[in-house]
């Protein structure tokens, strides 16, 4: 693209120093123009409220009276709050339970669809769970997994197996929440992968096939490497989403039993709207933000290694 002639180059202000010239180059102006609408939306509905949340994190604000500045008090309290650390631990565990399985299953599903059946029907079917809201999904699974009234346990009983409490047991609740979310997001994630698979030229597979490569080998040599941009996207967004798990917990467990599912965003919500500690909730949000920034940078670095997407 550097070779592309720029017809407007002549109009570029000439007397500017080179560093500034870059700012006013035609391409830069175009770039800014292209992102302008999105940027306005970003500033109004993401950046400003984030800055506001950041400043609130240095105050004691119960939502009902004006905030009172307290400096770093919320952050100090947070370090000393065992519930906060426990919530972080639970969240981390949840992400570990959720992400690997969900990603692998989705990729498997996408490849199966790509290589076996390209039918719209199958694609429409696998996205069905995603059509239901998180809340409704949690409600369905309350029924399905109910220890006494649920199909799954009735079925286990028919097989002579012991009933499982799922949401009701502190040992199973978190994994159950993860399972429910894998169910809802598997098809959705598969569809993302599937869209990525479509951009891989068919000819590559045909050529490999003629060379006698197995499906397995083609997957590792062609599919996976060429799917990298989509994989980065899937992993980054699902890790961010997974760290913010909330709805399923709110409906199905309420953070229980005995704090087994008190994930960080649930604890933030509790503090903000039940304990009326918005300042504290904002401080925790900032810590979560930092953790996610680190994770995201790591992921992007990892996946970009030796091969820049931005070339």
């Amino acid at each position: 693209m550097e070779q592309a002639p720029e017809p407007g180059a002549i109009q570029r202000p000439r007397r500017l120093p080179p560093a500034l010239r870059q700012f006013f180059s035609r391409e830069a102006m175009t770039g800014w123009l292209f992102i302008l609408p999105a940027f306005i939306g970003f500033v109004l509905f993401y950046l400003l409220p984030s800055i506001r949340a950041f400043s609130i994190s240095f105050t004691d604000w119960n939502l009902l009276r004006p905030p009172r500045p307290v400096g770093l008090e919320n952050y100090q309290a947070l370090v000393a709050d065992p519930n906060f650390w426990h919530a972080l631990k639970v969240t981390g565990l949840y992400v570990l339970l959720n992400i690997p399985l969900q990603t692998v299953l989705a990729l498997l599903l996408a490849v199966l669809m790509d290589r076996l059946v390209r039918s719209i029907f199958v694609r429409a079917v696998i996205i069905l769970p995603y059509l239901l809201s998180n809340v409704v999904v949690a409600m369905i699974f309350l029924w399905l997994l109910h220890p006494i009234l649920g199909y799954i346990n009735v079925f286990l009983g028919l097989l002579g197996l012991e009933r499982q409490p799922f949401f009701g047991s502190p040992d199973q609740a978190l994994a159950t929440v993860a399972g429910v979310n894998i169910w809802r997001h598997m098809g959705f994630t598969a569809l993302l992968f599937y869209a990525g698979l479509q951009s891989i030229p068919r000819s590559l597979y045909e050529a490999a096939s003629i060379d006698g490569a197995s499906e397995w080998r083609m997957f590792w040599r062609i599919t996976l490497p060429l799917l990298r941009p989509v994989t980065v996207f899937v992993l980054v967004t699902s890790v961010i989403g997974s760290f913010q798990i909330f709805d399923t917990v709110a409906v199905a467990t309420g953070g229980g039993p005995t704090y087994a599912t008190r994930v960080i965003v649930w604890y933030i919500y509790e503090n903000a709207f039940q304990f009326f500690k918005m300042g504290y909730a904002s401080a925790m949000s900032m810590v979560l933000f930092l953790i996610l920034v680190v994770f995201t940078l790591l992921q992007m670095r990892l996946f970009r290694a030796g091969h820049s997407d931005l070339a």
């Binding site: 970003f42 993401y46 400003l48 409220p49 903000a272 904002s282 949000s285 933000f289 996610l292």
Partner: peptide
């Protein structure tokens, strides 16, 4: 832009 998705909505919707 990406970082904007990392702050929980619970503290953003009031602003």
């Amino acid at each position: 832009f990406l970082a904007a998705t990392m702050i929980p909505g619970a503290v953003l919707f009031i602003p």
